[in-house]
């Protein structure tokens, strides 16, 4: 565990020397927050909280891109094989990636909430404990999913393609870029099987309805379960060497990381509660469905 902490501190120091951290971790999410608020929440109030939930979800899901690319770069440049010589395990490397990402994400999350409240006149704080727990858990889950992608992909190009496909589906189909109730019915049904849906609807509930951790049990259990499974999977198929290729059957392990969402999606599809709640939150926030719904998806990072 001490090795994981040593590597986490090391990664934090490296990130602080990188301008990309400031740009992608703080500035770009704030730009999106101002942009979305200007379009959908000009008068402040609960609409800002609704927009904030989307921007927070996007920031959290950014972990997905950052970590998968970093791991592939480390592998392709032979950095991982240098670390392999030291007495550390694959799990230690992965844990330090996830932990440093979580710590680095917190200032961004805090700044978005503060700006939403004090600059954009958000009329509530929501349940801040729930917001931070969901954001933190989401960061861990999406970071672990990103590491699974990096473990499965055999090159940077392959990583980019997989990331684009997953990122676009998360952003466009799960209520992040376009509110869930504004999407066609069949897409709403598909959205119930996506991890991003539980992150964004959970954040909406925490920010707008003050949902407590108890009330967010399904979101927390599915994100947590998925994070554990994803960590197990990427540890199992982790590769230190650039020329090692992942066996085809190992790619099936990736599906395991999504099991909690498949189960939750099937359960939610049968009871229909989540879509009703998403609809009710949007109506209570905007009074009615906003015509062109919300924010456009950002391009990849």
């Amino acid at each position: 565990m001490s090795h994981a902490w040593t590597l986490t501190l090391f990664r934090l120091r490296l990130a602080m020397r990188n301008r990309a951290f400031l740009v992608f971790g703080i500035i770009i999410p704030l730009v999106f927050l101002f942009l979305f608020s200007a379009v959908f929440a000009r008068n402040g109030g609960p609409a800002v909280a609704y927009v904030l939930a989307s921007v927070l979800a996007m920031s959290v899901m950014g972990s997905f891109w950052g970590l998968s690319q970093q791991l592939v770069i480390f592998r392709e440049q032979g950095i991982l094989r240098r670390f392999r010589l030291a007495p550390i395990e694959a799990g230690t490397m992965l844990l330090s990636s996830i932990a440093s990402n979580l710590i680095l994400m917190l200032p961004g999350i805090a700044s978005e909430i503060i700006v939403a409240h004090w600059v954009l006149h958000m009329d509530r704080w929501g349940n801040l404990l729930s917001v931070f727990v969901l954001s933190g858990l989401g960061a861990v889950t999406f970071a672990a999913l990103g590491l699974v992608v990096a473990s499965v992909a055999n090159s940077m190009m392959e990583t980019q393609v997989i990331n684009q496909l997953l990122w676009l589906s998360f952003i466009l189909l799960s209520g992040v870029a376009i509110p869930l109730p504004s999407l066609p019915g069949w897409i709403q049904e598909v959205a119930l099987f996506l991890p991003a849906t539980y992150l964004v609807t959970g954040l909406e509930r925490a920010l707008i309805n003050f949902a407590s951790l108890n009330q967010l049990g399904a979101e927390i259990a599915s994100l947590g379960g998925s994070a554990l499974l994803a960590f197990f999977v990427c540890r199992k198929i982790f590769r230190w060497e650039p020329e090692e290729k992942v066996p085809r059957q190992a790619k099936l392990w990736v599906a395991a990381a999504l099991i909690p969402f498949l189960l939750l999606g099937a359960w939610e599809a049968s009871r229909g509660g989540r879509l009703n709640e998403a609809n009710s939150i949007m109506r209570s926030t905007f009074g009615e469905k906003p015509k062109d719904a919300a924010p456009a998806a950002p391009s990849n990072r």
Partner: peptide
């Protein structure tokens, strides 16, 4: 054992003294 590998690298932003301290800690 200690090894110098033929094809390896370190992160661009790591500093020389920091790299030595890091690996000393890992060992």
């Amino acid at each position: 054992v200690g090894a110098v590998l033929q094809s390896t690298s370190l992160p661009d932003k790591v500093r020389v003294g920091e790299a030595l301290n890091l690996f000393a800690q890992l060992y």
